[in-house]
């Protein structure tokens, strides 16, 4: 299932070396972070609340300037050139924010059509068909003309995923896509992510706490820790859930171990959405 091998022409969608994650003037939240995502790979970022996962994503997409370290997207250094080059690079990935960050004065359809209108020259109706497809894939068919303010939190979250998928970029950052969703919807989203990763070679970098997502969708996971201020363990979900991955992973996955039965049930049900 999971992706193996080297990316074509040596360009990894995401490559991070020796990154220090911090807010300007604040203490370092994470240090010596090294990450790598291959095309079509689903990389999970795990860790306790407040350890700096969202902040790490802010660094990866170029919203915060790293104090130290290197971030390369598709083989290009993110901070090599801050002008038009950085904007071009930014158009090659999608980002879903933890809070959704939908444009409040646009309908859902307009939110998803927006990047298509800006960055393609498709006829408007074709772009709208593509946007409707994305909304329908996250289970929001019929809500195209709703305003974000009139939706539930989970619906806004799903709409935000649809918007991040609008251009089908080869690299997607998702901040807790399935947190707060019911298990059925959440499993459906995992299924969608896996389908897109396998068939379109989209690389996903997603922050998640959901055991279901970790065990069924994620190919490789990195576990961060607040005390260590860095990576506590890294590997396949099965490895992290085993006794070999160290005390932090053991604490994180304690529930998983208690719940092996539920886990295998989840695996069996995966795909029936």
């Amino acid at each position: 299932m999971s992706w193996t091998g080297d990316p074509p022409d040596g360009a990894w969608p995401l490559e991070v070396e020796d990154l220090t994650v911090a807010y300007p003037g604040g203490p370092a939240l994470l240090e010596r972070v090294a990450l790598r995502a291959a095309p079509g790979e689903i990389l999970g970022l795990l860790g306790p609340s407040g350890c700096g996962k969202s902040t790490l994503l802010r660094h990866l997409v170029g919203l915060e300037r790293p104090r130290r370290g290197r971030i390369a997207l598709f083989g290009r250094d993110l901070w090599a050139d801050e002008g038009a080059q950085m904007d071009l690079l930014r158009r090659r990935f999608g980002m879903m924010y933890q809070g959704g960050a939908l444009f409040g004065d646009l309908t859902l359809l307009e939110n998803v059509v927006f990047p298509l209108r800006e960055f393609t020259d498709l006829p408007l109706k074709a772009a709208e068909a593509a946007a409707r497809l994305k909304l329908s894939l996250v289970g929001l068919a019929g809500f195209e003309h709703s305003q974000p303010a009139s939706l539930s939190g989970g619906m806004r979250k799903r709409a935000a995923i649809a918007r991040a998928l609008a251009l089908e970029p080869k690299l997607l950052f998702l901040d807790e896509p399935s947190a707060g969703l019911d298990p059925v919807t959440s499993a459906g989203l995992d299924q969608l992510i896996v389908t897109l990763a396998r068939n379109l070679s989209l690389a996903f970098v997603m922050v998640t706490h959901e055991l279901g997502s970790i065990m069924t969708a994620v190919d490789r996971a990195v576990l961060f820790d607040r005390e260590l201020r860095g990576v506590a363990a890294e590997g396949s979900p099965a490895f992290l859930a085993s006794e070999l991955a160290g005390p932090q992973a053991a604490a994180f996955f304690r529930r998983a171990k208690l719940d092996r039965g539920a886990q295998s049930r989840l695996k069996a049900e995966n795909g029936h959405f």
């Binding site: 298509l116 074709a126 068909a129 593509a130 497809l133 894939l137 998928l165 251009l167 897109l196 379109l200």
Partner: peptide, 15 residues
């Protein structure tokens, strides 16, 4: 062929 491509084909058929 990605989802955007498929959407264009479906839109074409519809229109």
């Amino acid at each position: 062929l990605d989802l955007n491509g498929a959407a264009q084909l479906l839109w074409l058929r519809e229109t």
